[in-house]
Computed example of a mutant assay.
Amino acid sequence: MTIQENQIKQNIARIWDVSSETYDSQQGHGIQSEMEREAWKSVFKSLLPPGRLKVLDVGCGTCEIGLLFAEMGHHVTGLDLSEKMLAKAREKASKKGFDSVFEKGDAENPPFEEGTFDAVVNRHLLWTLPHPDTAVTNWKKVLKKGGVLIVVDGVWNDGTLETKARRFVSDFCTLLAERKNPRKGHYSREINDELPNRHGVPPEKTLEYFKNAGLKNVKDLDLKDVREIQKKKMPFRKRIAYNYEYHLICGRKIN
């Protein structure tokens, strides 16, 4: 890692340190209803092999998604650059009595031996990585043979006039209702310039990363049903902009 890349990742970690205070209360991040919780579990159960699995939630944040796997009886390891995100994750796991463990580390280069995990999962991570292709390759390495990689991401800004209008109305209403700048805390231009998918990751791009990494039995699942459940708990000012292309890509390590 170059000095510049290290500095970029330190800056990213600081931004998520700040975000940790409100992350779980934000629509689309924290799970806001039992219906949404069960919807996520249903999706994941359909993709996992049987038995109690070792699951890596890479770029786990507060481990909102990873701890769903703990609820399903699996052993979860969380990895993140942000110490404050990890602190929130540890607190949540402790309150629920889970034996999950959490480590600080780089999501692009998880510090684990090859063939350690039965499943690697992440949500809203791929878009924020400077080297997503390298990350997917390294996630495959830490999987056991037959293990599954699950990536949840979306296209947050497709650049269309409709999306721009929705975001403008949403930001304006949020500014009026909450008396705060809804874009405060977003990445700087310096960071964005290092991210090839800074507006989100189209499914075809994620599929390309999976193919290049040699993952097999790759599936592309549209998560519009989960998104619609999430929208039910959102105020209008958030719901109007929550019209993303939202998807899950999964694949297996055959060899």
Rank of each mutant, 00 (worst) to 15 (best):
Trp156His: 08
Val218Lys: 07
Gly214Asn: 11
Pro235Glu: 09
Ala87Met: 06
Val152Arg: 01
Phe102Leu: 06
Lys238Cys: 03
Leu56Tyr: 02
Ala87His: 08
Gly66Tyr: 11
Ala93Trp: 08
Ser170Trp: 06
Asn197Tyr: 06
Glu114Cys: 03
Pro182Ala: 09
His124Pro: 00
Ser20Gln: 11
Lys164Pro: 01
Arg123Thr: 06
Asn109Glu: 10
Leu129Thr: 10
Ser19Val: 02
Thr22Pro: 00
Glu194Val: 01
Gln7Gly: 00
Gly154Ile: 01
Ile249Ala: 11
Lys95Asp: 09
Arg189Glu: 15
Lys205Ile: 14
Leu81Asn: 10
Pro203Asp: 08
Leu125Lys: 02
Glu36Thr: 05
Phe172Asn: 10
Pro130Asn: 10
Asp222Asn: 15
Ala87Thr: 14
Trp139Tyr: 11
Phe69Gln: 05
Gln27Ser: 06
Ile8Phe: 02
Leu176Asp: 04
Gly51Trp: 05
Phe236Ala: 07
Leu56Asn: 01
Gly200Ser: 06
Asp171Lys: 12
Asn217Thr: 04
Gly200Leu: 03
Thr128Asp: 13
Leu221Pro: 01
Ser25Asp: 15
Thr22Tyr: 14
Val43Leu: 15
Pro50Asn: 13
Leu175Ala: 11
Glu113Asp: 15
Phe210Ser: 06
Phe172Ile: 12
Ile229Met: 12
Pro111Val: 05
Ala39Lys: 10
Thr137Phe: 03
Asp24Met: 00
Lys141Leu: 07
Asp80Cys: 04
Ala13Ser: 14
Met35Cys: 02
Gly61Ser: 06
Lys253Arg: 10
Lys41Pro: 03
Ala70Gly: 01
Leu47Asp: 05
Gln27Trp: 13
Leu67Thr: 03
Lys88Asp: 03
Ser42Thr: 13
Cys63Tyr: 01
Glu103Ser: 05
Ile254Lys: 12
Ile240Asn: 06
Thr2Lys: 09
His186Glu: 14
Arg252Phe: 10
Thr22Leu: 02
Leu53Ser: 01
Leu207Glu: 07
Glu208Met: 05
Leu221His: 08
Leu79Pro: 03
Thr134Phe: 01
Arg198Asn: 07
Lys84Gln: 15
Glu83His: 11
Asp158Val: 08
Arg37Met: 12
Lys104Val: 05
Lys145Leu: 12
Val43Pro: 02
Lys140Glu: 12
Thr163Ala: 08
Asn11Ser: 13
Asp222Pro: 03
Val136Ser: 09
Gln7Val: 04
His131Asn: 15
Met72Thr: 01
Glu113Leu: 12
Leu53Asp: 06
Ala135Glu: 10
Gly154Trp: 03
Val148Asp: 07
